[in-house]
Write a protein that binds this DNA or RNA. Sequence first.
DNA 1: CGATTTTTTGACCGCACGGTAAAAACGTAG
DNA 2: CTACGTTTTTACCGTGCGGTCAAAAAATCG
Lengths: 188, 188
Amino acid sequence: MDCAIEAIADVGLHRASLAEIARRAGITKQAIFYHFATRDALIHEVLAVVTKQGAEFMAARSRQEHTPADELRAYIEANVEYIGSHRERVKALVAIAMNFTDEDGRSRLLPLDASVYGDSLAPLQDILQRGQEQGQFVEFNTRTMAMSIRAAIDAIGPQLNAIGDLDLDGYARDLVELFDRATARVRA
Amino acid sequence: MDCAIEAIADVGLHRASLAEIARRAGITKQAIFYHFATRDALIHEVLAVVTKQGAEFMAARSRQEHTPADELRAYIEANVEYIGSHRERVKALVAIAMNFTDEDGRSRLLPLDASVYGDSLAPLQDILQRGQEQGQFVEFNTRTMAMSIRAAIDAIGPQLNAIGDLDLDGYARDLVELFDRATARVRA
DNA sequence: CGATTTTTTGACCGCACGGTAAAAACGTAG
DNA sequence: CTACGTTTTTACCGTGCGGTCAAAAAATCG
């Protein structure tokens, strides 16, 4: 599994052939078939493992915060930290999510897609809505705001690959400040 | 070229084989070789055509605005409109940008990468900086802000594919409002 | 030890890929 | 009609892919 993740992150999904994965693992291609019926099953397993690890990390990081604004800050910081400390896993996840399609180009992750978005976008939107209801946040479209926050977080991955000198802590601080300004009812 | 763009947008870069493109164009695979030395040359040509068309669209849309805040609004609106009205081209562009790698997994667009980012991120950062110098914008990291704005815009593509009922005009309005709040020195 | 699980060896299949040669069709000017 | 350059076709090649099969060889463990 580790070598599969590494291979996908390194050379992309469609170049991460069974032979390539086996080579990295120091085993033969046929040994993989003993444990996985097809290549698809392997990929699905990688996806399951990576998403599960991510969920566990986030669960461990989500301490109880007192206000929606604090929750939003914690959400951004935890996500940025996770991406920074699990670059390979995140890269593999993105590679699979973007390229695991059938002949018609449709995603093969539709059931999972919902859960992936559900696990990341829904709780975020929930934080925003509670913040508005409690009067801490100004009025805005919670869906657009949630999408923008996630997009800003997910943009880290490609940037990490493109430019090596990205200051993650600084980036997280900037994001927290940015979206605090965008959501806050009154200027701090 | 149109069929190549269509194929890449439809089934992804690595499934858009010469046979597939030829089939859509109603010609044989070998006819493509008469006009393009290799498949890579074809892809590069698609990339060049699409980016050029995009640049022309943006150039035509960038009317003279009076203040950095107006420029920022115009930038967001023009970009969202372009993505909405050129979904196929944008999809093909993203597919190529994300998957056009060599054996080592490195992007083959490094020279182009710089120009792609330069054409979209640099002018944005320039708007932000002028806004700060003129006192219309509050202090923030212009790079982080520029990345966040672009990320929020680029998130439209995947969302358009995932959910069909996305209201682009509304999304553009929300984004303008969001980043106006995030950048403005004083609350409107 | 013996039985079971796991891995290797090595050969093989059908397929789709990018790419190549040479021939055939085509358009057009003399 | 012919001759010539352009464009497209038919047929083919080598390669790597996912996947299969059978049997030998390790490794694991009660």
